[in-house]
Structures are given as structure tokens and as C-alpha cells.
Design a protein around this nucleic acid. Structure first.
Lengths: 223, 223
DNA sequence: GTATTATGATAGTATTACTATTAAATTAAT
DNA sequence: ATTAATTTAATAGTAATACTATCATAATAC
């Protein structure tokens, strides 16, 4: 039980799961351990069977929580975007200038992996988001999923940041493209820097991803 | 047999395949029909069994060409990037100004789906590139594949365009990030415009993807 | 004309992605 | 405290996937 006031509770579409994993110890361990396993094995080699063994349960039991492993991935990404929204809201509370709010948003997106959370390992979840999250919508049944609202939390982040951009420059034509390009780019660059470094420009600069995307964004929307 | 002078021949790493599919009718039909099937079914539901039935052959025979379906996908992406390089070279022959060459490069990347090729259906291949190509490197064995040089053709395109950018602005710090962000972005926006339109800004503008990425790129590298 | 290579036909295995059934353990309701 | 309801464990089973192996036949090369 958690009685802390204003603690984070994710907003997750109920059609993503069969039984709410946050409603039981077993459900919570499904989420917790799946993050570890997906990070270790990759989404392709991750199976409910392996997860069941790890949490000392059975395949059939996990299937009572999630229809399949893709839904679990959608749950994790949805959780992530809900949590990102919360972090952005926190960071931008009482901040007036739109440019500062935009910088903060980009900072949250690029530094998310270094944040902490009492419930799950954000660092590993962030790695999963960078490597696997596009597999939650780069699939043939994307339209059906979208109709069910499974990508709502992601689209909301894009919409929120686009609104900030339009505050800065109301005549800018491509706010949503710019934001979705930036978000996908951040995840790709994070991944490239580890595995395909010739697609990045890392050098000595620690914060090159934040620097690049703030620069790119601010120049794009400058009047 | 094709005796046309200067016709396009892709440059593809020999470790991607077991037996060169371009060396036989069967091999060519594997490539041809796999493009149709992956586009129809999506990469996840595409199997060598289904392909074998389609081309009136057997699973075992297809396995003599490719170790698995991931390698086939890597072959297709590699073919694509080799072909893109050729198209860019064609389009930029005798063009002096670097800015014009950059615009041409972005034009090829965004309009590739409308090009024609005698050997295979570029329109469908482009759809596959947009939807599936990231699955060829967003995998756990990326480092092994990279060591074998499987992503060489892609990295070369990024490198070539980065060089043009550095001609325009030799002090620009992030050419590779900008180019890889643009390329992945183009594919994503192409896909989003069909399936997740709230992540784009389509309006009436036909050429919004080309417009957006040229604007973004030129503003980013402007001094 | 023989040797080589490519393909077809068939079979088989381990794993995956589930579904179904029943029993035991927990939890909630009265 | 007892009963009822729900959750989980245990087990079994199926169809499909992702291969590997073997052998026969067809095509091609020398």
C-alpha cells in the first residue's frame, strides 16, 4: 500500500490487459521481471514461458493478465509515456517561458534513463523503450490497436510538446512531425551510440543527444 | 541476361546470404515474392514455409539461400541502400553546389517509393523499408551483424550525406546525427501519415515530408 | 558421359504461442 | 467460522514456427 500524496499512478488503457497487473503481487512481478528479461534477452527471445519460470508461476497464469507478449510491451510503453507526462508536468510546474518548458521537455525525454522510480527499474525500461518500443506500433495490426487507444499516452506527449512549440511560434507548420521526429530520434541515437556509433556524433560531449535535439528543434521553429 | 551499360548492380555483403539469390531464377523469385509477402503479411507473419508454397518450392530450398528470414530482411535493406546510393549518384552527377546535392539527396530519400526498377517492385520495397527495416538492426545480435558489415550500405549513405553537410558548413557538429535522424524520420513519417496521422502534419501539402526535412536540415546546418 | 551442383520430397525436432481442464490455495462475504 | 467466489498452480494438449537431415532426381558443367 502506498499512501504518499500525489505519488505517480500511471494512466493505462484497460483494454491493454486482461487483468490489471498492478492489482496483485503476481501482476507486479510480471511487470517487474518482464522488464529485466526483455532487456536481457531482447523482445524476440522473451517468452511467457521463460518469464513464468523466473517468477515461479506458469504460462497459463501470465496469459490471464496479458493476451500475448505484444500487449505486455504495449503496457510497458504506455506506462512509460504516462510516467514521462508526469515527470514533464512536475518539471514544468510554475515555469512560464515556453522556451524553458520546451527545453525541460527535451531534457526529460533525453535523461529519462537516469531517473528513479520506486516501482520499477526506469533505467532498464528506458533501454527497452529505445530498442523495442517501435515494435509496439510497427506492426500489421497498428490500426486496430490505435482504434482501441493503445497509443494514446504517446500521442498525448507529442501533442503536449507540439502545443508548447506553437506557443513559441504559432505559425510553425510542422510541430507534430518535429516532435515525433525528435522523440524517435532520441531513442535511436541512444541506441546507435552504443551499437552503431558511426550514425552518431558522440565525441567527448556527455549530453550530445540533448544538445543536438534542442538545437535542431529551436532552429527549426525560429521565426 | 542484362547487357545494358551502367545498369544498376547492387553491392551486397556476401555473408548476408548462403547462396547468392541473384544467381538463379529461383533465388530471384525468392527476393521478388518475399517483397510481396512481407508487404502483405508483415515481417512477423511472413515465413519461409508460406514463401515456399508461393514460389512452388520447399522450405529446405529457401534455407539454402538464407540462414533465416532476418537475413533475408537484411538482404532487402542492403539492396535498397545500394540502390539509393546509385540513385543519388545519378541525380547528383555534374551538380556542383552542395546545397543542391543535399536537396537532391533528401528528394531521393523521400520520393524513393515512386521510382521504378526493372528487377523488383520499388514501391513495395519502400513500404517494407519504412515499416520493417529498423527490425534489421533493432535486435540483440546487432553487434555481431555490424561486425560482419551487414549495415555497411546504410552507414555509407549516412556518411555520404554527412560529407555534403560538412561541405556546406564545415563547423557543424552533428552531421551524422542529423542525417540518421532525418532518414529514420522520413520512414516513420511515411508510416505515421498512413496509420498514426496525429504524429504528422499532413494537410493539403503533397510533399510535406520532403519540405519538412529539407527545412529542418537546412536550418540546423545554417551558420 | 560422368561428375557436380541444385532442387524437390519427405521427415523429424525443439520451441513458441497459445487453449483447456482440474485441483488447490487465497480471499471475500455472510 | 463457514461458505462461496476468485485466483493461481499443475498438467496436458494443439497448431504453427524455425529450423535440420536425408535421399532421390533433375539440371548443368566439364
Amino acid at each position: 500500500m502506498d499512501f504518499a500524496l500525489f505519488s505517480f499512478a500511471p494512466n493505462i488503457n484497460k483494454d491493454i490487459y486482461i487483468k490489471d497487473p498492478s492489482s496483485s503481487d503476481l501482476g507486479r512481478s510480471i511487470i517487474l521481471e518482464s522488464i529485466g528479461m526483455i532487456d536481457d534477452l531482447g523482445f524476440e527471445d522473451f517468452t511467457f514461458k521463460k518469464l513464468a519460470i523466473k517468477i515461479n508461476s506458469t504460462e497459463a497464469t501470465i496469459y490471464r493478465y496479458f493476451e500475448n507478449k505484444h500487449k505486455l510491451l504495449i503496457y510497458l510503453t504506455s506506462w512509460y509515456w504516462s510516467w514521462i507526462e508526469y515527470q514533464m508536468a512536475l518539471k514544468n510546474t510554475n515555469i512560464r517561458p515556453a522556451i524553458e518548458r520546451l527545453r525541460n521537455a527535451i531534457s526529460v525525454l533525453t535523461h529519462a534513463g537516469n531517473y528513479q522510480n520506486e516501482h520499477l527499474d526506469i533505467h532498464r525500461l528506458f533501454k527497452i523503450i529505445c530498442l523495442e518500443s517501435s515494435k509496439s506500433y510497427m506492426i500489421k495490426n497498428v490500426d486496430k490497436n490505435n482504434k482501441f487507444g493503445f497509443y494514446f499516452n504517446y500521442k498525448k506527449i507529442v501533442s503536449n510538446i507540439s502545443d508548447i512549440i506553437l506557443e513559441i511560434n504559432p505559425t510553425y507548420k510542422y510541430p507534430h512531425m518535429l516532435v515525433s521526429t525528435m522523440i524517435e530520434g532520441i531513442h535511436h541515437q541512444e541506441y546507435f551510440s552504443l551499437h552503431l556509433p558511426s550514425l552518431t556524433d558522440k565525441y567527448e560531449n556527455e549530453d550530445f543527444i540533448y544538445d543536438f535535439y534542442t538545437q535542431m528543434t529551436l532552429l527549426s521553429i525560429s521565426k
